[in-house]
């Protein structure tokens, strides 16, 4: 960890991480029509945090999300963890790049969609190799299509949350103050 792990930074990361786990558990409990077509609600804290968290904290939050889900769901020692990690990290990478280079031309809608597409693409490749075999290419467009849609929807929600959430504003202020010290 660079410098000291300030308590405020720790708190913000832990709360965001907890929120992510909460979202993921909610999603887990809601029955889905088709497996592998996830809403990605757990990405919400990552999305809204992307704006003000420092890069190393974004990475750390992603780690928390992946390991946290692995531990809570118990899937740490299975292929699910591999897929989750690959999808999450590729998504975060793409989202960070889009945000950095997109600046004010892009909103959370675009960032979220790009991230969802990246995550889905990586997971499709993994699925072809480890789960379904080559013949399953047929489901790739469906998976990508649903990723496009869920990314859009999540982006809209994230955008609205950023605009209306007082709590988020507090967090951001506290974080900025905290990491300056």
């Amino acid at each position: 960890m660079p410098r000291s792990f300030s308590p405020i930074r720790r708190d913000v990361l832990a709360v965001f991480g907890a929120l992510s786990l909460f979202m993921s558990t909610l999603e887990y409990l809601v029955p889905k029509p088709l497996p592998f077509f996830r809403l990605g609600l757990a990405n919400l804290p990552l999305l809204v945090g992307l704006r003000f968290l420092r890069p190393q904290d974004v990475l750390l939050l992603t780690l928390i999300k992946v390991f946290g889900q692995g531990l809570v769901n118990g899937t740490l020692a299975s292929y699910v963890f591999l897929f989750s990690a690959a999808g999450s990290f590729s998504s975060v990478l793409v989202m960070s790049l889009v945000q950095h280079f997109g600046k004010s031309w892009v909103s959370l809608v675009g960032i979220s969609t790009a991230g969802a597409l990246a995550s889905s693409s990586v997971q499709i490749v993994l699925a072809l190799f480890f789960v379904f075999g080559e013949a399953a290419r047929a489901f790739a467009p469906y998976s990508l299509g649903s990723a496009l849609i869920t990314g859009l929807v999540l982006g809209f929600f994230a955008q609205r949350f950023v605009q209306t959430s007082r709590w988020l504003q507090n967090m951001e202020n506290g974080y900025r103050k905290g990491v300056q010290g």
Partner: peptide, 27 residues
């Protein structure tokens, strides 16, 4: 197998482990 073997109370060493522990508490 993984679900049976993994418990959230699994102690992950280091500061990351502490961070995870705090995350679970907030969760």
């Amino acid at each position: 197998l993984s679900v049976a073997a993994v418990k959230p109370q699994l102690h992950i060493p280091g500061r990351f482990g502490g961070l995870l522990g705090q995350t679970f508490w907030y969760f």
